[in-house]
Each structure stands twice: as C-alpha cells, then as structure tokens.
Write a protein that binds this DNA or RNA. Sequence first.
DNA 1: ATGTCATTTCGACGCGCGTCGAAATAATTC
DNA 2: GAATTATTTCGACGCGCGTCGAAATGACAT
Lengths: 241, 241
Amino acid sequence: MRIQNATDPDLAAVAALIGDPSRAAIMVALMDGRALPAGELARRAGISPQTASAHLDRLFRGKLLAVEVQGRHHYFRLHDERVARLVEAMAAIAPPPTVRTPAQRDAARTLRFARTCYGHLAGALGVALTGAIRERGYLNEADAAFVVTAAGDRWFRNFGIDLDALRGQRRPLTRRCLDWSERRHHLAGALGVAIASRCFDNGWIARVRDSRAVRLTDRGREAMRREFALKIDNLSISSPN
Amino acid sequence: MRIQNATDPDLAAVAALIGDPSRAAIMVALMDGRALPAGELARRAGISPQTASAHLDRLFRGKLLAVEVQGRHHYFRLHDERVARLVEAMAAIAPPPTVRTPAQRDAARTLRFARTCYGHLAGALGVALTGAIRERGYLNEADAAFVVTAAGDRWFRNFGIDLDALRGQRRPLTRRCLDWSERRHHLAGALGVAIASRCFDNGWIARVRDSRAVRLTDRGREAMRREFALKIDNLSISSPN
DNA sequence: ATGTCATTTCGACGCGCGTCGAAATAATTC
DNA sequence: GAATTATTTCGACGCGCGTCGAAATGACAT
C-alpha cells in the first residue's frame, strides 16, 4: 500500500530512516550521546562524505538527529532522549555483531567490556558497577525502576554527586537501560550520567579514541576493587557473589 | 557500506523490517498484543494475501513476530514484550497520523480516545484512568516508575486483582508506557493488563470490531464517574482537577 | 470426492533509493 | 588572494525489493 491508514503514527517513516545500514551505523556511532562532525560520521559508516551528507540531512529532517554548526563543522547528535531509547530498544533485539577479523574481535571485546551509552556507563563494567551499587544497598530495584536508598543518598553525596540538583532536572534521576551486550539492565538516567562523569573526573576510566568504548585505567582498577569489591583482570570482571 | 562493522548490533536489520509501510501496518495492527490471522493482516495493511505472506515470513524470521498455526489459519502476534516496547518507542516519535477523509477522522478520534496496547488501556481513557488512580493515592510516580501504595494494595485487591500473583510473574508489576496520542505516560505492565481485564469483565469497555480501539459502555461511563470521578461526555474526558 | 477457503510459492515487472564522481559553496589558514 | 578543509549539490548508475497474477499446497466442509 502506498498511502498510510492515517489513524496510526507513521512507524515506517522512522524505521526506514534507521533501516539503511549506513544510517544505522551513524545512529550507533552517536549512541553514546556525544556530537560528532559529518566527516567523522562518514568515516565511521564507511561511506563517502557526499553520501553521508545526504543521510544526515534525512536523519535531521526526520527529527532523529540535531545539528550544531561550528564554523565549517557540522556536529550531529541524537535529537533527544526518546531517540536514544528507541535505539536502545532496537539494539536489545537486533542480531548481535558477527565477528569477521581478529581486529574486530578485539574491538568487540573492548566495546562489550565498557562503553558510554547516552552519557552513562554500559557494557560489562556498567552492569557490574550497577550490581555492586545495589549489593552495597545504595540502590534498590523496585518494579521496573531503580530507587536510591537512604544509605545511597549519603554515599552518592559523599561521592561528589549533588542529588538535589539531579532531582530538579526534567529527566528522571534513575532509569533502567537494557544492555545489549550483557542482556541485563544497567543504571541510566541523570544519576547514571553523574556516576560516569565522576569516574571520568577521577581518572578511573578514559575514552578509547575514535570509539564509544571506554577503558579502565590502573587507578580505576584499584578504585573498583577498593570501593566496590570488583576484581577486574584485563577484560574480565569478578564480584564477590 | 555493505558489510557491517561487526562490533555493534545490526540495527538496520530490525529497522528495515519495520521500515516498509505494509510491514509497519502489520506491526501496528498487532500492537495491542492480540494474535491475528494472515488474511486479516493483509486486509488491514491493504495488500494482497501473497504479499502479506512474504512480509509475515520476513517478520517471523526476523523474530519480530511469533506464529501459531490453527488448522488452515496462521495467527501472528508480536514476538515478545521487547518488540512491543520497540514499537511503543517508535510510535512515540513517529509522525502523527494525517487525516484525509471524514471517516478516517472519526476512526482516529475513536482510537485516540481509548485502545489496547499490548493488553493494557491506552489513549485518553488510559491516561485519565492512570491519573485518577494516582490522584486517589493508589499509585505513586517515583523516578521513572509507578509504585503501588499501601492504600493501592488494598484497593486493587478489593477491585478483584490478585497482586501477589502478578508480582510472581516475570514481567514487571507496573511499567510506564508513553502514549503516542496523548504524549504522556500511562500505566502498563502486569497491573495495567489486569486493570484492563477487569474493565472488560465488568462490561465497562468493549472492543470495537476490526480495530484496536475500545469504546466505553454506558455502565463504564457510570463506573468512571462513580469510582474515579471522571466525567466522560462522548469522547471528551474531564477530571476534577 | 468435490468445492471452498487460507496461505504459500513462483515468476516477472518496475521503481525507489543508496551510491559515488564531479563540481560548487563556504569557512579557515597562510 | 590562494590553498586547504568541511560539507553540500547535482547527476547518473545500478540493484534491491515490494508488488501482484497465476498456480500450487493444505485444511475443512458437505
């Protein structure tokens, strides 16, 4: 059928935008919430700048991306949190990556270990950290949400997070995000972003260049053991239970 | 690019399935969680049975749909709750329906007023009912989730809902679902489905044939006023505040 | 058995769209 | 002003895929 039924939202319009492999690669590259210039996105998607330009224009007009022009650079990012959630939901049921080369295997491992997802920590480290925080009684999982406990309230403040400021934001303090590589939930929302920020500030984690992946620094490894009883060896994590 | 990067899930594979208007129409028709036969889905999507057959096969192999064969009928439904959430997330940012004919306008109104969404109530009625339940102190919105209060615990039991049985299920007791027509959250999850069921059983609401839409019966209108202080006139709802 | 109904398979058509080369525009640098 | 870099516009190519007609398969009824 050509014309849509006109009683329901036009799902196909949105889905078709992400349904092209090149555009999907662009969305994935922006999944961590940062803004990237058009040329960089072309490189990541493995297409020419002209082709990327056309794709970015369509994604922008479809309201999936926002653009910020700085001189001759055009920085694109996911339009809003609803788009991020759509990408999350899609990643949760999409076919897992199929490794082809040894280099890809390493890259995939690094990405599964730790990465950022719309500003918060994801991957094995994100899930483990969420688990450790829950184990220590700072966070409860009630129904389909994470709730900060009284003990958590004190601990997060001591960790340098201003919970009151976070609660004042429009976005929720906590959110569950389904981790596509671990197939379990990790902590997202304003608190998740604040925790990731503190980890960056403390020098516990650092971005891997040209990637959404994050690596644990030596100081970070030590901190994870000290603060959360997480023993991390290379890319494998073991917790006490 | 032809080959995917192989470090990330294959978003395009999933998105391309929903990216075709006919397949999107099929997904929308199944959005309420019921199972429909192939022929009916062809009719709803406005395509021939052969074409629908090909589409349904692709959606099935892509794990977006599940199929149940009963004699010569093939009943299709959304594969699981993750798919339902993907469709929800997509509907929340998809272009709203554009009305073309007077008949479509009526159908759109009916659908916006009340419908089922993976088993629970959605539309203006779903949002209003959720609001009323919160107003009466049976439900709290904490962080990004709904929590049943002690008063709610009593009231839901009195309403004929076995909360303990619902808590034992794998799916969450409560869930927020973003209503695409109201652009606000309504109550979903096991409790949301149970409430809708009670409303059907009580004869308060009834399905509109050949549609996901739901209409309020006379008894239902009376009950909404009596139980929830919701004054409903034709398709417009007014609450005390 | 025969006819009907639901669904699938096969084959062929046609168009939409992702692709890149070439060139234009625009901002930055020297 | 000239050279470099980032991005866009235009044009043309080619292939993937959604479409339906025709026919086959399979289940049910009488």
